[in-house]
Design a protein around this nucleic acid. Structure first.
Lengths: 331, 331
DNA sequence: AACACAATTGTTATCGGTAACAAATTTGCA
DNA sequence: TGCAAATTTGTTACCGATAACAATTGTGTT
């Protein structure tokens, strides 16, 4: 345990603590030989300034909170990596909470981050209702939401244009000649599901086709639930020849459902995913999907947060345009 | 920004700050009606005690540092999840660094964690040489290493018995009748590679077979490098009919190499991975692999750390026994 | 009612730094 | 050489909480 304090260094160097502080922070003028004395004392004692103590006076922790719903969902590690990378470059540390898709835990995490006096927080895919979210957020000076739109002062957002992505997917399928296209979503409240569905409907309506509610299915975001939901959908509406899924894990669940029902992919059933997680190119058949740069989302979120912290902007909303990646599952 | 301090609460409740502190921490006796007054004041002001200030006096941050080499490597998110879960339950927060397999960055991360006065650190798969690692570690009061053995006071470790796992793999292949088995490792310095190779060699020698160095190949831990290394290996030693890989990503690289060379898996080439990442069961052919419970590694590491912090043990070494999971790639 | 003792509350110093101002030293120039 | 201005250093107070001890209030007993 490092126990060397600034006053010990000051004593060893024969100067005041302020002088040591000035040398450490390279702030305020410092004389040549004094500086050397101090640096020598620091080195010989192995002094490392306490960020805790510093934070108390400066009212700044150089720390950022990141709350994600499920780190095991391959969508998120890349976002975390992007954010961590940007944070590192800017001299910030990341405090990570994995809410496990649990609202209460998400709330508590945001509160804890407040207790820790983090300089800002990034909330990914919050499942909290608007009012609760707003209430918890207002005690923070800088907030960035990922994939969740919210108009509020101090709140910036970084989102993927899922609506646009879904339209790309549906148009691709329509162009390939599919006439009965199903939609596989997550929970109905989830914003990405809603955005995706909007694109699904819009793309169909643009071509004067009806989006039949019976062709849409929702599910809890885990593979077996998805697989089951898709199986029910396909048994109920066997005329479906193509599926757009709100993310790649759902698409993989759909693949398994197709396998289970003896439907060949893509011959009998075309499947398009969303997110282009690494797995998408490695499974068989490889997954046609909508690609988004998750790393960029993370790094942009963090940079937006830094800007927001420094008061350069109060709110700003980034929207990433995804693009279609054609592979085997929907050629 | 929460700015309510304890003295404001004290003023509002008409008591001293110590009384407020006692109510907040439920420590020391407190009178009924005073407690109510204080709680009311806390609620109405929205007071949240500063962990920063508290940490300064108590010399405890309720914070744990976690350094991992690559969060995009699917081996790690589960470990992080396990550690985060256990930390959450114990009331600790996690500070995460992603070193990107970079030694310098890893060093810096450990130093920063010291500056933050975290209560303990978990270092996953450190690539630092022993002496540097020891030097940096000694300023921390509690350390747990994952997949890295090191005998030192205050240092506990949680490791997977890769050697045993590799033996399982080789024995499975030998039992299936393979006579020329190749080994695919990561960088030669990596401990998991070394442990894996030891198992590979031991399993062969147990059956009085020689482990031919020409059958072993090493590579940087990224898919394309692995793929290329495997292709060179297979072209050089075409008699090889089976490969054991030091992890699943390497096995997937090997699969791609086989595809590239027109070798069918498992008919022409059997492949066994290691780690049982989620992808392993989803790719085609599904991957025979060595299964380890990564979530448990993370949670055990954290619990060990907590025990170490509370002085219950100074060093302890956990070794997880993996087990063979037979799938299509090596039936 | 008086006293001893327990329960509750308050005071002061401190954790390890930095802000803000004051003091001391150096420098430049008439 | 002297003196104002610039540079370097030191002092004091404070950030927001808690530890340790002191003071007060309440309780039961005879």
């Amino acid at each position: 345990m490092s126990k060397v304090t600034i006053s010990e260094v000051a004593k060893a160097a024969g100067v005041s603590t302020m002088t040591v502080s000035r040398v450490v922070n390279q702030k305020g003028a410092t004389g040549q030989q004094t500086e050397e004395k101090v640096l020598k004392a620091i080195a010989s004692l192995g002094y490392r300034p306490s960020k805790i103590a510093r934070s108390l006076t400066t009212n700044k922790t150089n720390t950022i909170g990141l709350v994600i719903p499920d780190i095991n969902n391959p969508f998120f590690p890349e976002i975390v990596a992007g954010a961590e990378e940007a944070a590192w470059k800017a001299g910030y540390s990341l405090v990570l909470y994995n809410s496990n898709e649990n609202q209460e835990r998400e709330l508590e995490a945001v509160e804890l981050l407040e207790d820790m006096r983090v300089d800002g927080i990034i909330l990914a895919c919050s499942r909290l209702p608007d009012n609760e979210l707003l209430e918890k957020i207002e005690s923070h000076s800088a907030v960035v939401l990922i994939n969740r739109f919210l108009t509020a002062p101090k709140v910036a957002t970084v989102s993927v244009d899922y609506t646009y992505g879904a339209m790309l997917a549906v148009n691709h399928l329509l162009t390939s000649g599919h006439e009965h296209i199903g939609f596989v979503g997550g929970t109905e409240e989830s914003h990405s599901t809603q955005a995706h569905r909007t694109g699904f409907i819009t793309a169909l309506e643009t071509r004067n086709l009806d989006a039949d509610p019976r062709y849409m299915v929702y599910s809890q975001p885990n593979e077996s639930a998805i697989q089951e939901a898709v199986m029910r959908l396909l048994e109920r509406q066997p005329e479906i020849t193509a599926l757009t899924c709100y993310n790649d894990m759902a698409a993989i669940g759909a693949l398994q459902a197709a396998l289970e029902l003896g439907r060949r992919v893509p011959e009998d059933l075309a499947i398009i995913g969303n997110d282009n997680i690494r797995m998408a190119s490695l499974i068989n058949p490889s997954l046609t999907t909508i690609g988004i740069s998750k790393h960029d989302i993370g790094s942009n979120a963090l940079e937006l947060l830094l800007a927001s912290m420094s008061g350069e902007l109060t709110d700003k909303h980034l929207l990433f345009k995804p693009k279609l990646i054609v592979r085997q599952s929907a050629p």
